[in-house]
Design a protein around this nucleic acid. Sequence first.
RNA 1: GUGACCAUAGCUCAAUAGGUUAGAGCGCUGGACUGUGACUCCAGAGGUUGAGGGUUCGAUUCCCUUUGGUCACCCCA
Length: 432
Amino acid sequence: MKISAVKGMNDILPEQIGTQRPISAWQRLENACRVRFDLYGYREVRTPVVEETRLFARSIGESTDIVGKEMYTFSDRKGKKLLSLRPEGTAGVVRAFVQHSVHTRDPITKWWYGGPMYRYERVQAGRYRQFHQIGAEAIGVAEPAMDAELLVMLDRLLRDDLRISPLKLLVNSLGDRADRTAYVDLLKSYLKKHLDSLCEDCRRRYEQNPLRALDCKVPDCQPVLDEAPQIGESLSEPARRHFEKVLALLGEMDIELEVRPRLVRGLDYYNRTCFEFVAGGLGAHDTVCAGGRYDDLVGSLGGPRLPAIGFAMGVERLVMLLPEDPNLEPEGPRVFFVYVGEESLETCFRLMEEMRESGVSAEMDFRGGSVKSQMRRADKKGARFAIVIGETEIATRRVSLKELWREKARDEETISFDLLVDSVKKRLLMNG
RNA sequence: GUGACCAUAGCUCAAUAGGUUAGAGCGCUGGACUGUGACUCCAGAGGUUGAGGGUUCGAUUCCCUUUGGUCACCCCA
């Protein structure tokens, strides 16, 4: 019986298989995030993969596709509670923040998180059922500088640290709740007049979520949408000033961006600033990072009425775009021991461990076989040195150190057992 | 939920019009060198042609069903 991984859930292997990047690419991305977030005062938080379903329903929105049809939901053994695999990270993080009354210790909380998320969707390029997000949330600051700092941090991370290119930052303001409801009314009455020139999907959106119609890609819809009222015109004075300040601060830092009046977000909780980083070369899903302000969410989950802003990055999408690492380390052992006969196995075993204890990676092939086949393996693993140990070496307590990689370098020098480790270390220090 | 395309060795792909024993490169194992890799040469292992059914003297090839994969729509990171 051959069992393979569940559809849409992928293995990440040490080496590259097909288009699936090796785990080293993931590690590079994760390390870059860790370093960058630390620089800006974000601390890591880890929350469970499973939460009560109501948490997601309340925060993400009952009417969203995510909650309506994409969650992995089940009842636990006792049957009382409905649980779900998390479809995104913010809800759980905010829940943890509220549950532990974190705001009582510090009025400002900056947290980052990462891990697998789950959505039951048809898989497609850049979209999986188990996928990974790395995100951050800054809770407690309403000032526009917070928005700007977050965007500067992301721009530096994506552009400078990860070298994602091409990359575009799109921003918009959704206004406050009242602005949004006023605008939705305005938009609806406009769309109503043009329903017959809109596509089928847009007519459905008109009923369900008019804002999403603005995102429509159907060419025939564009003329109508271009003429549609823009949310910018419906912003309250404070919301407008907030947005302008964000843009001013970003301009100050020479952050390149595009204001997209038609940019909206899929989750219900966003207000004011929202943004998206889009890259090329990913098929239909070019967004690698998205987020925005959610000033009402913490309060609505039973916590203090604190403003917040956050984002999430799609790890699979970013990893796919990560340029090859120019200075990739050879991952093989530095030293490979080759043994000839049972007695030399013991000697190799001991010397190999001595090598490792002093910090030099070493391996051997316990399966034995011919010296040739063991040497082949040493080469294949990318070892720097090979050491063959047989009867003569044991008798003289000396080994010859063969340097691989080099074409000629026949400098097989004999070294006594006692000096072996030091000698290898010295050579490693001398040239790489 | 809707639609399109694909499926042959571990990987990438061949196989004339439906024809005999399904091939190649890479990888793997071994040998040439009985204690020395990488280069070269030689050999070997590895296939229910995704699965099931049908048409046919004969199916990798044509038809149906099914499973899996890929991509797009919806939606989203």
